[in-house]
Nucleic acid binder design. Structure first.
Lengths: 334, 334
DNA sequence: GGGGGTCGTCGAAGCGCTTCGACGGGGGAA
DNA sequence: TTCCCCCGTCGAAGCGCTTCGACGACCCCC
């Protein structure tokens, strides 16, 4: 193994000069820097990560905690992970993969052993058990998702309230006057990740603002429930012409159910959804939708961490603006 | 930060004794060991990962390279990753996540900087550009998948040949005499990962062995192609009663196409597939299938690496036996 | 009863890097 | 011309851990 002293000898300088030439933490003449770089290339030198971490108390590794719970949309998680890795590499950092299964102990372990410099935690629950730990850790962290009490933490996510609003604005802009939100299963509104509530807030606020008649319908995640909701809507709100769906598994079944009841999408009924693009695009009638901007969230969380590691202040909450992708499922009210 | 000398002082022993008590590399009396452990707990000691890595030249970190290419089934990748992490933790190792995008340079980097002790590479191509590098690296590696020339490497994967055979045996056992394989797109058989060929080999061999009439049909991954294949099969092989599908995206469209042509599954036609359970289970007619045993492969690759790190010899090839899950799509020939 | 092992522990030497203080030399200001 | 300061470089001191050799103490066997 070639080490820094080898490079130093080869370049005719001291080891510290090599180090400074590499890190740029002290001025080095252009000429020596060049010589050092040549030696490095020639000898194929790579600084030993452990030695570096020990001496500098920086490992240049970030921890990423990925969720395992059922009901998580896996491709989206993977998108997060990939964008985190890519963004981290841009800052000369690597990513250590942790599963949620490891829990608090795992977080404490990688932080306390100085294996990682900072942590990214995905799929944060409203009352996540890891929050006190993260607050107390001596290493910075960023949460993807918002807990009930984000004080003392740094969080980033899609602005779900704005997403709810945007769906409504879109429908309102197309002239729809009576709309409904078909939401997540009831239990999601109680515990879980809190984004569900925020969609409802945005939906309701925007509907009121636009003078629309609106209603909200939590729905279990199975086709039978979807059919039932469809029938109910038809019966109770016959003037309905716009629907917002925030419940991935039933998006397609719900559309099927409406069509089975004689409502054409988008002819009689416009449908928008908040769901991964991948899903919205492969439904029989491609659905106008707002996606989770996984790549942006992942990259954003890394940027936040880098700022924190650099000692810069960061906002406590970062809300990414929703973007609506137009597809075939919405059109002006007949 | 509490360090090993603090523990040593607290327990009234030397630092080396603490180290030995922790690693077990030298005998330590039960009594001192107990005292050391108590001190560790009381002080909340965690060995510094970097220092440990530097002194022992072991980082206790494995690299996992995940694929990004289109056409990769993401949930399966995630299953691999999770099982690798879980298995690694059982051996007191962590997992560094690399994307394929980093390429050879990334592998070299994490290996040469001693960031990782060993590497797991997923989605290995027949003529993977990384192979020479992996052969030359001073760190052990395991490939998930088989390249054309596996000499000097350690590979693990589902035994795709046996999977092809098992599908045929199953159909033969049900009395089917005329069967077809609907395979991956033609280009997959040329370059790519090579498992496609192996399925064909197994399929053909088992069909011949059982005296069945068989045919193989590569198929593009879109519904139109599926319909075309269905029509072609019906026309050219009217006695066909069994089909093996090795092409995830068209599994459902193909069944739809058969039914549209008046063939009921499994009434008139038995269908088996090689595909993730998740897909096989959610098709309208749940499909009898052989899954990629992602969890086993992931865990197996870690076990292989641990053996290699321990200096033990490991087989060059590890083929996991296929397992057939019976579902609704196959039944005895009428 | 003495020699040879083994057991349990210690001290010290490093692992390869970063960083701090120091220092010579040259340029600018006075 | 002198003084000061900054630029560019060096040497040395660690960072916190593992590991090697050494060394009593004790036991066993002949």
């Amino acid at each position: 193994m070639v080490k820094i002293t080898d490079v130093a000898r080869h370049a005719g300088v001291s080891p510290s000069t090599v180090s400074y030439a590499l890190s740029g933490k002290r001025p080095i003449s252009e000429e020596t820097r060049q010589r050092v770089e040549d030696s490095i290339r020639e000898l194929g030198y790579r600084p030993h990560a452990g030695a570096r971490a020990l001496a500098s108390s920086r490992s240049n590794v970030l921890a990423l905690v990925v969720p395992l719970r059922a009901g998580i949309h896996v491709p989206v998680v993977m998108q997060f992970a990939v964008s985190v890795v890519t963004a981290a590499r841009r800052h000369d950092h690597d990513v250590l993969l942790l599963t949620q299964e490891e829990g608090e102990e795992g977080l404490r372990r990688v932080a306390d052993t100085a294996l990682v410099d900072a942590l990214i935690v995905m799929d944060v629950q409203l009352h996540d058990r890891r929050l006190p730990l993260l607050r107390g850790l001596d290493r910075p962290s960023v949460l993807i998702g918002f807990p009930a009490e984000p004080a003392g933490l740094t969080c980033i996510d899609l602005d779900f309230k704005a997403a709810g609003e945007l769906c409504v604005e879109h429908l309102a802009g197309l002239g729809h006057r009576v709309i409904g939100l078909v939401g997540s299963p009831p239990e999601v509104y109680v515990r879980e990740t809190g984004f569900a509530q925020r969609v409802v807030q945005g939906f309701t606020a925007a509907a009121d603002r636009n003078g629309l008649s609106s209603s909200v319908h939590p729905c279990e995640a199975d086709p039978a429930a979807a059919r039932q909701i469809a029938e109910q809507l038809l019966r109770e709100r016959p003037a309905l012409t716009g629907v917002v769906v925030h419940n991935e598994p039933i998006l397609e079944p719900l559309i099927d159910a409406f069509e089975a009841l004689g409502l054409r999408v988008p002819g009689d009924l416009s449908v928008t959804a908040i769901c991964p693009d991948e899903l919205a695009g492969r439904v029989r009638v491609p659905v106008t939708s707002i996606a989770i901007p996984a790549a942006e969230v992942g990259a954003g969380s890394v940027e936040l961490l880098m700022k924190k590691l650099g000692g810069a202040p960061v906002p406590q909450a970062t809300l990414l603006p929703p973007r609506l992708t137009l597809r075939a499922s919405t059109r002006p009210r007949p």
